[in-house]
């Protein structure tokens, strides 16, 4: 339902999104049966295609040429897909978007090679863009994202961290790729440099807001909605914003420690979820997400007049206000 809502928001781009879907299918084609199956499996699992949408919208502020800009959009979505395949190995995930992961259907090694294959395809696509600046933006983003993931593993199970650690982590985990999607769309379309930077900042703020909401939903949604137990982030040792906001509450801290120690029972998980849902933490986290959202909207306001501004605003609002 939520995905449908989002698709309605970018209905103006429908035909271009379809071009990108087709291109993704072509890009994932391989002479290896295994890679073909694994990649198509990923494609069928779908996704919101948020990054391609931001690339296209940002490109509307320059010389919009779908034949050129689709290379960037496809490339960014492929990089996102490749990272998901590798993340499933790191997180030992059996399911993603209601389907078995590549690592669970085949094995970890096949997942590694599938990710490497998709990543190389992404670079193959983007090299049709003969603009060194675009490559510098993308490569720097990729390196930063990896460093972010390394930090995430380092920070796992560590309760003695602060909000700055959390923001630094989600910036690299989520916000950077969305910021780069906007930035690259504008740069490749030849938009004014100032506009390109504004769009990059917009993407960054939306990404931050989006990730905070994602972390809230992990605690407030039902197991059924999530397709995994609510509170999975904490059970896996990832300390998110709402948890950081309640970690010093003596009524909740022992439960958090149990979750991190891997000794939390089902009853205790329910108790923890009940307590955190009624605490101030969720409200405070939503407020922080909203602050980022407002900053994103201010960036939109500052952009030159363009009919696309409404789409950017609507999508930002959707991402920052989604209920699931």
């Amino acid at each position: 339902m939520e995905k449908m809502k989002l698709k309605l928001l970018y209905s103006d781009l429908k035909s271009d999104i379809e071009i990108i879907e087709k291109e993704l299918e072509t890009a994932l084609n391989s002479s290896s049966h295994f890679l073909n199956d694994a990649s198509l499996h990923l494609l069928k699992a779908g996704g919101k295609r948020i990054r391609p949408v931001f690339v296209l919208l940002a490109a509307k502020f320059g010389q919009y040429d779908i034949e050129l800009i689709k290379k960037v959009a496809v490339s960014l979505e492929l990089i996102h897909m490749a990272s998901l395949v590798h993340d499933d190995v790191i997180d030992d995930s059996e399911m993603r978007r209601g389907r078995p992961t590549v690592k669970s259907q085949w094995n970890n090694r096949v997942a590694m090679y599938t990710g490497d294959f998709i990543f190389a395809r992404a670079l193959q696509y983007i090299t049709d863009i003969d603009n060194p600046k675009a490559h510098q933006i993308l490569s720097e983003t990729m390196v930063e994202i990896c460093i972010g993931e390394v930090i995430q593993i380092e920070d796992k199970m560590q309760l003695d961290q602060n909000m700055r650690d959390y923001f630094r982590r989600i910036k690299r985990k989520t916000a950077l790729l969305i910021a780069s999607s906007c930035h690259l769309g504008a740069v490749v379309a030849g938009a004014d440099e100032r506009v390109a930077i504004q769009l990059k900042r917009f993407g960054y703020f939306v990404g931050m807001s989006f990730q905070i909401i994602d972390d809230i939903l992990d605690l407030t949604s039902t197991d059924k909605q999530l397709g995994k137990p609510a509170g999975s982030d904490l059970l896996q040792g990832n300390i998110t914003l709402p948890v950081l906001l309640v970690k010093d509450d003596p009524a909740i801290r022992p439960l958090i420690e149990k979750a991190l120690a891997g000794t939390m029972t089902e009853d205790e998980r329910q108790e923890f979820l009940g307590k955190i849902r009624t605490s101030e933490a969720i409200k405070k986290a939503k407020k922080i997400s909203d602050t980022y959202l407002q900053k994103a909207l201010r960036e939109v306001e500052a952009l030159p007049q363009n009919s696309i501004k409404k789409s950017l605003r609507d999508i930002a609002l959707y991402m920052g206000k989604r209920k699931f």
Partner: peptide, 14 residues
Amino acid sequence: TVLAGDFYSGMYYQ
């Protein structure tokens, strides 16, 4: 090690 491989790939591209 998974991330190291990805980081090295990013470095070669960069």
